[in-house]
Design a protein around this nucleic acid. Sequence first.
DNA 1: CTGTTAGCGCCTTCAG
DNA 2: CTGAAGGCGCTAACAG
Lengths: 338, 338
Amino acid sequence: MSTIEDVARLAGLSRTTVSRVINNHPYVSEDKKKRVKFAMNTLGFVPNSAARRLRKQRTETVAVLVPRVTNPFFSRLIESLEIFASDHKYKLIICQTRYLPEKELEYLELLSTKQVDGIILCSLQNKWSIVEPYLQHGPIVMCNEYTDEAHIPMVKFNQAEGAYVATKHLLEQGHRRLLFCSGSDKSSMIVQHRKKGFLHAVSEHKEQVDSVEFVEDAYDMEDGCRVFRDLLDTKENPTAIFAGGDEVAAGIILEAKRHQWSIPEQLAVIGFDNQLLSEIMEPTITTVCQPVDQMAKKVIELMMEKIRTKTYKKQEVYEFELELMIKGSTVKHTTVLA
Amino acid sequence: MSTIEDVARLAGLSRTTVSRVINNHPYVSEDKKKRVKFAMNTLGFVPNSAARRLRKQRTETVAVLVPRVTNPFFSRLIESLEIFASDHKYKLIICQTRYLPEKELEYLELLSTKQVDGIILCSLQNKWSIVEPYLQHGPIVMCNEYTDEAHIPMVKFNQAEGAYVATKHLLEQGHRRLLFCSGSDKSSMIVQHRKKGFLHAVSEHKEQVDSVEFVEDAYDMEDGCRVFRDLLDTKENPTAIFAGGDEVAAGIILEAKRHQWSIPEQLAVIGFDNQLLSEIMEPTITTVCQPVDQMAKKVIELMMEKIRTKTYKKQEVYEFELELMIKGSTVKHTTVLA
DNA sequence: CTGTTAGCGCCTTCAG
DNA sequence: CTGAAGGCGCTAACAG
């Protein structure tokens, strides 16, 4: 492996001049530039990034912390983040916390050990007060997740409004008994915001609503199936369910069909995230569409800016709107116009 | 940010001793070890990884090149790779080539610029002769994809056998007209191997088979739908389809149902990869299950070994067996025993 | 067991 | 426009 020194020697010039050519500095004569380039090519020289990092105190790498990459929401997010980062010549280190606080801390060390210039947090497993100190080593940008205490840039969706619109849609179909079905609201503000939107819609129709129930341990399709079975044990079961994800919604619908229920006549179900799944189920699932690309773009822009300006401790919140996609699981086919 | 120098000064010792403590070297008295640790804690010292990389010529990072992370097969693979890499304290840089040769080359530069210790290639967009030279900078391990020319470690599935068993299953159901439906066999050996297995099964039943057709531009669900529609134009359409992926199979089935065909009675379909999708379709899709975890484990082990031993240019092929999962899209429900 | 010293490869003042 | 020299932070001989 050749170094800048070798190139300089072969070109009969100084290391400085070679370095200038590498970094496109002005003030190098065309003649010498050519000699340097020739020498670089013959030696197959490539600048050593470790040396560069040490010298420039910059890695051109950012870490992305997600719970799991197989969750379609996160893999879609990573896809976008990677593309936008790549536009800035930045690389992404993907880290799966698997919902474990200790894993999250382990990966936050990437910042203090200067392996990355910044961290994009797509979930938060520790209390913010534990994460906060890492800010002294570089920027942290929160993506999708949210927490009041953090004085950093945060990019999120307007979950409350999304849930509000979705719930209103259910209420406008005349439903009187509702179920709000999600993951735990302990660990994530996202659930809390959705619940707020849900309750807001309910309160606006309180004369119409007979009952409101909550399930807060539903994460995947299997959970959805269970939720439906539990329903059967109650005498006055809900007629409309707001589910925190398309997988859960799909599970509910799948199990309902196994029990010969017809959707949406006997039970209306609404999902979240407009995944492929919501298109292929029968009926298709009414869902809330999240503009992931826009969020990813903003996150990368912010990260680049923070790395440049080195001001990490300012709270800035950017919010993107969600869109309700009305499909077959809440409205009968015959009423949908072609 | 404090350096090893600061720690040494505060502890009243040399940088060497501090370094020894950091790296768990033997021959440091308990007393001094304590003093060093105390100093490290009070200063909040963390070793700078750039300096370490420069000194040790090792990054503890590996790049993984995939076409897209949203493809469920690849996101599942990445999940596994990340977990096993993490066991060895290795980080993963995820790179999406988006099927572009130039992107692949761009990311291969991570190896020559010493940003990573090795590269895991999960697809191959360039001719091997173009990739080969990068081997002088570090190990490349091929994962899932395969190419004869490469003298490197390759971990793959036995695609030929998988396709053979799947096709045989179709033939045993008495089908006489088959369609092999996949992506292009130009860019990937995987399709070629599957086709070989398919033809092998066909040749074993040649007195039974009336016709064999091929479609080689089907990649996703949309393509699957199209494939079915094209079928309608032929007078003697196939009664069984071997599809190169569960998405394609799902598309075919979806479109068939829209045309009131009954599956598997009028058309049997077999997918690949045993994705969630194959479970939730109605009927469920007979598919070929790939042991991704095993492959990922082997790939990481090999990578660690190559990084250690620095012998990159030896061809070693490791193959894992595939398993046919018989479900509803090839065999009538009533004939399946509980 | 501990310290001294010499770089790893690069960029960037500073002085021509 | 060009070069000399110092140092980013760390580790690994080599001496003691």
